[in-house]
Nucleic acid binder design. Structure first.
Length: 854
RNA sequence: GCCCGGGUGGUGAAAUGGCAGACACUAGGGACUUAAAAUCCCUUGCCUGAAAAGGCGUGCGGGUUCGAGUCCCGCCCCGGGCACCA
C-alpha cells in the first residue's frame, strides 16, 4: 500500500496519502471514555480573498505535529478547524460587486480549504464549522440572550466614526489619517445607539484568574494592563456656589490631598455647564467645542502642550476647607474614573506641567528628600495637618478612612477596562435576536414572560418615545439575515437591514417568535405585539468567542454542545495563535466563558489553560509581509516546487516557534535535501528497500545510542514545542545512518516514526515500503531505553583557572583524585600548574575538573 | 514616557551557570563526470602559527562566581504593545 514511484516524488506521494487519510477518516475524533483526551486548537482563520498567508501554516504545522505525536502516545486527539467568516472584507466586496457576502465567503472558504488540505494537516474535517452558518450563529445569538437576560447587555450612545460624504459608519481600519479609506473624505466622531456588553462586571475575575493559566507572561501582563486595576479613593469635593452639591473625583493618591491646588474636569463632564460662571461661559464653550471636534489622535498629538480653561467655579477641599479652582482640560477624559481629578502639581507630572503653564500654585506634601518636583516617589507627609509625618501608605488609608467617616469619600477600585461595544452598523454579522416594543407592550410581555427578561429593562429613547428590548424566544433562533437590495448602509447611520421594511417592522409573537410584516393585518392572539427589529449586527468577535466549545459537538441542535461532549473534551489543552490577539479576542472569549461557567454550561472557569504564540514570519527583506511591499510568500508556491513535507519541515526548522524570523528561501533546499537523503538511505533506485537496511543487521553501539537519544530528544522537544532542535537531532541521526555501512530495519522504522509528525506523507510512504502495516500514525511512539543512552565512558574537561586546557575520556564514576592525577599527568595541563600552588579544585563528576592556582 | 520581547559567525540559529557556535544555509577547495546537475569528502568566528598550540570573541560598562551568552546593576540599539488612566 504505497505509491509506485521509484524516487522521492512528492508530487505523487503527497496527494496519495492525503487521499488515504481522507478515505479512512484517519483523524476523526470520537469520544472514548477509556482514552485520555487531548484537544489541540488553532486560532481559526478569517477566509480572506487573498488566500493562505505563510503565517497560517507556521502555527498550524506546529499544532499538527503535536496532534499527530499525541495520537501515537495513546491520546484521543481532537484537532478541529473552521472559519471565522463574518467581517468587513466580505461586506466591502459585496458593496463593490453587489454579490451576497455569503457567496464570496463560500468561495474564499473553498480556496482556504484546498490550501489547508494540501498541507496535509490532520484535522477532523467532520467537525468543520463556519461562524456564518445559521446552524452555528443560532447559538451565538443564544449566548447573547443569556447575557441579555443576566443584565450584561445594554444600549447606550457611543461615539463612532461617521463619514458625512459616504453617509456611513466606518470601522477604525477604514479611517486613514482622519479620512475615509474609500474616497478620502473627511470623517467625524458621532454618537450612535450601540449595544454594549458589561465586561467590566467581570474585571476582577478576569484579572484574578490569570494566575491560573499557563500563558506567556507577556500576554498576561498585557491583559493585566488592559484591565488596568488601580486602588484609590473617590473623594467628594463640595462646591462653593451650590450648597450641598458635590464634585466626585477618583485618585490613587489620597495621601496627597493637602497638595491639591486646583481641580480638572473633562470637557465632556456633565457638570461643566452648571459649574461654569457666566463670565467664563463663552471661553469654556469654545474650548469644549474644540475638544469635541478633535479626534482621539489629535488629542494625543496635542498632548505635548497642556491646554485648558478656568470655569470660574471653586470647590472646597474636604480635608482642610481650602478653596480650589475648577478647570476644564482635555487631559482628563470622561471614560476613566469619574471624569474629574484633584490636581496635585507637586506630585504628578501632568498636573505639574499644567500648573506651570497656567501659573497655579504648587504645594509639596510628600518629603522628596531634596529631589526636584514633580516628585512621584514615596515618602513621609509634610504640610498635611495632623497627617504630617506619616508614611504615605499609612496616610492613604487614614485619610480615606477619615473621609469615609464623614461621608466625603470612600476607598474604591477603578479599572481602565471599558464595557465592550458590541454592535456594528453592518450587514454581514449576526443579527441581534431582539425586537423593540413600546412601554405598554413591554409591560404585558413582562407580566407573562418575566423569566426571559433582564431585571432592568433595556431601553432607548428617540424622538420622545422609549423603546423596550424584548428577546426572541430561543426556540425561534436562528434569526437569519434578510436578503437586501443594497449592502450600503441606510444613510441614517443604521445598517442596511434598516431598509428592509418587511423584515424590520413587524407584528411579533413574543411566545413563539413568529413574525408578520407590519404592513399586514395584526394576527389574532394576545401574544402579538407591534415591534421593530434591531438593525445592528454583532461584531466579528462574537463568533470567535465560543467556537472552541462548538468543536466538541459541532452538530448539536439542542445546545451549544451536549454536556457529555463538554465533559469529555472540555476546553483546549493547548491553544496556538498569533500574539496580535493577546488582548481583544482572548479577553472577550474569557469573559463569555466565565458567563457560561456561571450558567453551569461549561465545567471550567477558564477557556484556554495553555496558550502559545507563534512568531511572525517576516519577508525576505526582514519587513512584515504585506501586499504593498510585494514580499508575501504563498505556501502554494513552495508546495508546488518542493512539496508540503519540505514546507512543514522548513517552517519548523527556521527557528524557535515563538521567535519573529525572516523568510529565507535558500534554507528550503537544506531541509529538502534532508528528506531526499532519508529516501536514498532507505530506498533503492528501483523503489524497493535499500540493501543496507535489513532485519539481519546489527547496529553499532554508537548508532544504537544515538537512536535512543534521538527518540528521547525528539519526543521531549515536541512536548515543549521546540521543533527546530527536534529536526536538528533527526538530521544528526540521519547523518550517522548515512555513514553506517548497514542498519537494522527497526532503526529505519523508528526514524520514520520520529519523522512522521513533521513530514507525514514521506513517512507514510517509507513506513509502508519498510513493511509497516496500515498507517505509521497508528504505530505507538517508540520508547527509548535509558540504559542504551547511558555510556560507560565520559569526557572530562580539564580547566586551569577556568580556562579550557584539554580533555580526556574517563570511565563513568571517576573520582576527583583520579581525575586530578590524570590532569596533572596531561601534557597540556602540566605547564599551567608547574611550580604553582593549587589553591582549590572544583570537580563536577563526569564533566569538569577546574584547578585553581595562584 | 511606560510595559513586554530581543541583540551570539557571512546567514537562520544551538548551548540544566561548566569545551560558545550543535544542526543547517552560503562561500571556497577537492572527488565522481566528456561536461553539467545531483551526490560524497574537506575548509569555513577573528588574530598569530607550517603545525602543535596560543590569544581574543556572545551589543557596551561594571559586578557576583573556581567558572557567565546564561545570574545581578547601569547604559546603548532593535522589534512589539500601550499611552494625558488621575
Amino acid at each position: 500500500m504505497a505509491t509506485t514511484c521509484t524516487d522521492y516524488n512528492f508530487r505523487e506521494i503527497e496527494p496519495f496519502w492525503q487521499t488515504f487519510w481522507e478515505k479512512n477518516h484517519s483523524f476523526r475524533a470520537t469520544a472514548d471514555p477509556a482514552k485520555p483526551k487531548y484537544y489541540v486548537l488553532d486560532m481559526f482563520p478569517y477566509p480572506s480573498g487573498a488566500g493562505l498567508h505563510i503565517g497560517h501554516p507556521e502555527g498550524y504545522t506546529a499544532t499538527d505535529i503535536l496532534a499527530r505525536y499525541k495520537r501515537t502516545r495513546g491520546f484521543n486527539v481532537l484537532h478541529p478547524i473552521g472559519w471565522d467568516a463574518f467581517g468587513l472584507p466580505a461586506e466591502q466586496h459585496a458593496v463593490k460587486t453587489g454579490t451576497h457576502p455569503a457567496a464570496n465567503t463560500q468561495n474564499n472558504i473553498t480556496n482556504f480549504k484546498r490550501q489547508i488540505k494540501a498541507l496535509g494537516f490532520s484535522y477532523d474535517w467532520d467537525r468543520e464549522i463556519d461562524t456564518t452558518d445559521p446552524r452555528y450563529f443560532r447559538w451565538t445569538q443564544w449566548i447573547f440572550l443569556q447575557l441579555f437576560r443576566r443584565g450584561l447587555a445594554y444600549v447606550d450612545e457611543r461615539p463612532v466614526w461617521w463619514c458625512p460624504e459616504l453617509r456611513t459608519v466606518l470601522a477604525n481600519e477604514e479611517v486613514v489619517d482622519g479620512r475615509s479609506e474609500v474616497g478620502g473624505f473627511p470623517v467625524e466622531r458621532r454618537n450612535l445607539r450601540q449595544w454594549v456588553l458589561r465586561i467590566t462586571a467581570y474585571a476582577e475575575r478576569l484579572l484574578a484568574d490569570l494566575a491560573e493559566v499557563d500563558w506567556p507572561e507577556s500576554t498576561k501582563r498585557m491583559q493585566e494592563a488592559w484591565i488596568g486595576r488601580s486602588e484609590g479613593a473617590e473623594i467628594l469635593f463640595g462646591l462653593e456656589h451650590a450648597a450641598g452639591a458635590t464634585l466626585k473625583i477618583f485618585t490613587t493618591r489620597p495621601d496627597t490631598l493637602f497638595g491639591c491646588t486646583y481641580m480638572v474636569i473633562a470637557p465632556e463632564h456633565p457638570l461643566v455647564a452648571t459649574l461654569t460662571v457666566p463670565e467664563q461661559k463663552a471661553e469654556v464653550d469654545a474650548y469644549r467645542r474644540k475638544a469635541a471636534a478633535k479626534s482621539d489622535l489629535e488629542r494625543t498629538d496635542l498632548a505635548k502642550e497642556k491646554s485648558g480653561v478656568f470655569t470660574g467655579a471653586y470647590a472646597i477641599n474636604p480635608v482642610n476647607g481650602s478653596r480650589v479652582p475648577i478647570w476644564v482640560a482635555d487631559y482628563v477624559v470622561m471614560g476613566y474614573g469619574t471624569g474629574a481629578i484633584m490636581a496635585v502639581p507637586a506630585h504628578d507630572g501632568r498636573d505639574h506641567e499644567f500648573a506651570i503653564r497656567f501659573s497655579l500654585p504648587i504645594v509639596q506634601v510628600i518629603d522628596s528628600d531634596g529631589a526636584p518636583l514633580p516628585y512621584v516617589g514615596d515618602g513621609r507627609l509634610i504640610n498635611s495637618g495632623t497627617y504630617t509625618g506619616l508614611p504615605w501608605s499609612e496616610a492613604k488609608q487614614r485619610i480615606t478612612a477619615d473621609l469615609a467617616g464623614r461621608g466625603a469619600g470612600q476607598a474604591t477600585v477603578n479599572y481602565k477596562l471599558r464595557d465592550w461595544l458590541f454592535s456594528r452598523q453592518r450587514y454581514w454579522g449576526e443579527p441581534f435576536p431582539i425586537v423593540w416594543v413600546s412601554a405598554g407592550d413591554y409591560a404585558s410581555i413582562s407580566a407573562v414572560r418575566r423569566d426571559k427578561l433582564p431585571d432592568q429593562p433595556v431601553t432607548f429613547t428617540q424622538d420622545g418615545a422609549t423603546h423596550y428590548a424584548v428577546p426572541l424566544p430561543p426556540e425561534s433562533l436562528p434569526l437569519q439575515l434578510p436578503s437586501v437590495q443594497s449592502y450600503l448602509p441606510s444613510g441614517t447611520g443604521e445598517s442596511p437591514l434598516a431598509n428592509e421594511t418587511n423584515w424590520l417592522e413587524l407584528w411579533f409573537n413574543f411566545e413563539t417568535g413568529a413574525a408578520v410584516p407590519a404592513s399586514q393585518p395584526k394576527p389574532a392572539g394576545a401574544a402579538w405585539v407591534r415591534g421593530r427589529r434591531e438593525t445592528n449586527t454583532m461584531p466579528q468577535w462574537a463568533g470567535s468567542c465560543w467556537y472552541y466549545l462548538r468543536f466538541v459537538d459541532p452538530r448539536c441542535e439542542t445546545a451549544i454542545a451536549s454536556s457529555e461532549s463538554l465533559k469529555y473534551w472540555g476546553t483546549p489543552d493547548i491553544y496556538v495563535g498569533g500574539a496580535e490577539h493577546a488582548v481583544l479576542h482572548l479577553l472577550y472569549a474569557r469573559f463569555w466563558h466565565k458567563v457560561l461557567f456561571d450558567l453551569g454550561i461549561v465545567p471550567t472557569a477558564e477557556p484556554f489553560r495553555k496558550l502559545f504564540h507563534q512568531g511572525i514570519i517576516l519577508g525576505e527583506d526582514g519587513e512584515k509581509m504585506s501586499k504593498s511591499r510585494g514580499n508575501v510568500v504563498s505556501p502554494d508556491t513552495i508546495i508546488e516546487s518542493h512539496g508540503t513535507d519540505t514546507l512543514r519541515l522548513y517552517l519548523m526548522f527556521l527557528g524557535p516557534l515563538e521567535a519573529m524570523k525572516p523568510w529565507n528561501p535558500r534554507g528550503i533546499e537544506g531541509v529538502h535535501r534532508f528528506l531526499q537523503k532519508i529516501w536514498r538511505e532507505l530506498i533503492a533506485l528501483d523503489g524497493s528497500v535499500n540493501a543496507k537496511v535489513s532485519r539481519a543487521n546489527q547496529d553499532s553501539a554508537e548508532l544504537t545510542k544515538l537512536l535512543h537519544e534521538s527518540i528521547k530528544k525528539v519526543g521531549e522537544d515536541i512536548e515543549n514545542l521546540r521543533f527546530n532542535t527536534a529536526i536538528s537531532q533527526m538530521m544528526i541521526l540521519v547523518n550517522a545512518i548515512q555513514k553506517a555501512p548497514t542498519i537494522n530495519i527497526e532503526t529505519a522504522q523508528v526514524l520514520v516514526q520520529l519523522l512522521a509528525p513533521f513530514a507525514p506523507h514521506i513517512a507514510e510512504e517509507l513506513w509502508s515500503r519498510l513493511g509497516g502495516s496500515q498507517s505509521v500514525m497508528l504505530a505507538p511512539w517508540p520508547a527509548y531505553q535509558a540504559e542504551k543512552i547511558a555510556s560507560s565512558e565520559v569526557k572530562i574537561v580539564f580547566q586551569v583557572n577556568g580556562k579550557h586546557r584539554g580533555d580526556q575520556p574517563v570511565p563513568v564514576g571517576t573520582t576527583q583524585e583520579t581525575a586530578l592525577a590524570l590532569a596533572k599527568a596531561s601534557a597540556r595541563v602540566a605547564p599551567y600548574i608547574e611550580g604553582k600552588v593549587i589553591k582549590r579544585v572544583i570537580f563536577v563528576p563526569g564533566k569538569i575538573l577546574n584547578i585553581v592556582v595562584e
